[in-house]
């Protein structure tokens, strides 16, 4: 008997469905890195964090809004707790931005040389983009003003992480963790209350 985990099945199916968007975002990240080839490590770290955050918001918003109605209906009618579905869906934009930022840092490594690479900015840019995309997921289960508020909140999280990065690198990582955790809890609770009939 071959069982597959719910999380991996939902995440991989949605990621396959978003394959083209992930590819575009990765290509854009690589192009952006090539344009920054004469910049220093600080500019690369800032660029990667902000570009990754924008990509994360885009991939998070692409999760809903009628683009994957059949998948949504299957997930809604399956005997799953909202937190399980929320965790699986949160993996999708997170994996998407990690792929895109991997493209960014590979091109940076090739174009600027290894002197412009360090572990902390690479990991922080990916962590920042993941946290921002998880916060932005809250916008997908809301409408009107609240949808805009959640997208704005995701932007504020990205800006805060970037501002914290230089003076306080550990604080930036801690903020990513807290924002991501609260964002995921909020998304899970909103998903549990979400009514397909109200959309």
């Amino acid at each position: 008997m071959n069982f597959r985990s719910v999380t991996s099945e939902i995440a991989l199916t949605r990621l396959r469905r978003l394959g083209a968007q992930v590819l575009y975002v990765t290509a854009a990240a690589a192009l952006f890195a090539a344009l920054q080839m004469h910049s220093d490590l600080g500019a690369h770290a800032l660029g990667a964090a902000l570009f990754g955050s924008l990509a994360g918001i885009y991939l998070a918003v692409a999760q809903r809004g009628g683009r994957m109605r059949e998948l949504e209906l299957c997930e809604q009618s399956a005997p799953l707790y909202a937190r399980e579905v929320a965790r699986a869906i949160a993996l999708v934009p997170s994996l998407g931005v990690v792929i895109a930022l991997a493209g960014y840092w590979i091109v940076t490594g090739i174009s600027s040389g290894s002197r412009d690479l360090a572990a902390a900015p690479v990991i922080l840019s990916m962590t920042c983009a993941c946290a921002v995309s998880v916060v932005a997921l809250g916008a997908t289960v809301r409408t009107g003003v609240w949808q805009a508020v959640y997208i704005l909140l995701a932007g504020v999280v990205a800006a805060t992480i970037v501002l914290l990065e230089y003076p306080q690198l550990p604080a930036a990582f801690l903020f990513c963790g807290i924002a991501g955790f609260i964002g995921l809890r909020q998304y899970g609770e909103a998903l549990a209350r979400w009514d397909p009939a109200a959309s």
């Binding site: 008997m1 071959n2 069982f3 597959r4 719910v6 099945e9 939902i10 299957c74 399956a78 005997p79």
Partner: peptide, 14 residues
């Protein structure tokens, strides 16, 4: 069907 089976925690081949 495999997707639905995974969501319902059913054996996929069956």
């Amino acid at each position: 069907i495999e997707y639905r089976a995974a969501l319902w925690q059913l054996p996929q081949a069956e």
